[in-house]
Design a protein around this nucleic acid. Structure first.
Lengths: 166, 166
DNA sequence: TTCATACAGTTCACATCTGAACAATAAGGA
DNA sequence: TCCTTATTGTTCAGATGTGAACTGTATGAA
């Protein structure tokens, strides 16, 4: 079933290109919503879970807010709030950077580690379920196509080509 | 360039499935962000623009908030706010439904029509740019794969299989 | 008719996300 | 050393997104 029937749109979508774009956005929000609900049952949000995962698997065991923001594509204003809440619930703590007084080093607490370890298996099982029945070649092709889309976005839609800590 | 390099993740992503999932979400937010910026230059948001487009192309010329929510996958609480702001800026107006006093019929104003007509060409050009250089067969395959993902989400991740006006 | 149930919108509390402005600190060149 | 520039994090105002509770209204069955 295509998008048009799924959403009950009154009329067909004019071009394949447009349909692809809507498909990407709609599928993305749908996945994000499912993730949100999963984590919600554990008094956590997906954004917060992502931070914990980064901390778990980084070599350093402590990352600056800026670095977390870069990896998770979250801007620094948001990261302030996300870390605030994680700190309030005791899953994470902020420490001073020994050599740079601008930086907050974010480190996971024992409690935080426990929470990720509890939630991660369910998360990975969800990923499996979501992608089940799709051939490996379809998945790699999907990845290549999406990379092209992002390259187009960077080159043709965002004039200065530029990142920024976001 | 793949996701890992793009985001500066410290380590590779373990499975193709997981990489696909991250690709979908990341690409979706990237597109949404570009759209947000485009509309922002015109004192509008992408959510508001989507409402105007639905009104422009629906046969009825006036839709209930519930129907708008269904088509745009926005829950009713959000729709209240979005229509509030569109009404405040004069692009849309609420009218009583003749036969059902629960319903607000949302109708576009002349000013609203003008705004969509100004913004739509740029939006469609953006879609073209975003998808340029990708073959038609890649696009249709992308669409089919994403539809499968959504079907999985509905069947395997959301137990009651159920929609709701969201 | 009456009552249970479903539906449309609004409101609330919260967590993101947007850009923008700001303070403190770093880093590098004149 | 001094000064310009870049970086880190916080804060602000505004718009969405989440679920949940609540009011009105409609509908269908008893």
């Amino acid at each position: 079933m295509g998008l048009v029937e799924e959403l009950g749109l009154g009329r067909p979508i004019e071009t394949v290109e447009h349909e692809s774009l809507l498909n990407i956005i709609y599928t993305g929000t749908m996945i994000a919503r499912a993730a949100f609900r999963y984590f919600q049952g554990h008094r956590l949000t997906d954004a917060q879970f992502n931070v914990l995962v980064q901390l778990k698997y980084s070599d350093e065991k402590a990352l600056s807010q800026a670095e977390l923001g870069r990896r998770l594509v979250v801007n620094k204003a948001d990261m302030t709030g996300i870390v605030d809440r994680l700190e309030r619930t005791g899953l994470v703590e902020r420490r001073a950077h020994p050599g740079d007084r601008r930086v907050n080093l974010v480190r996971m607490t024992a409690e935080g580690e426990k929470v990720v370890n509890v939630l991660e298996p369910g998360y990975l099982r969800g990923v499996e379920l979501l992608m089940s029945g799709i051939s490996r070649s379809d998945l790699t092709r999907l990845n290549r196509t999406l990379e092209k889309v992002r390259r187009n976005a960077k080159r043709k839609l965002i004039p200065d080509g530029g990142r920024e800590g976001r």
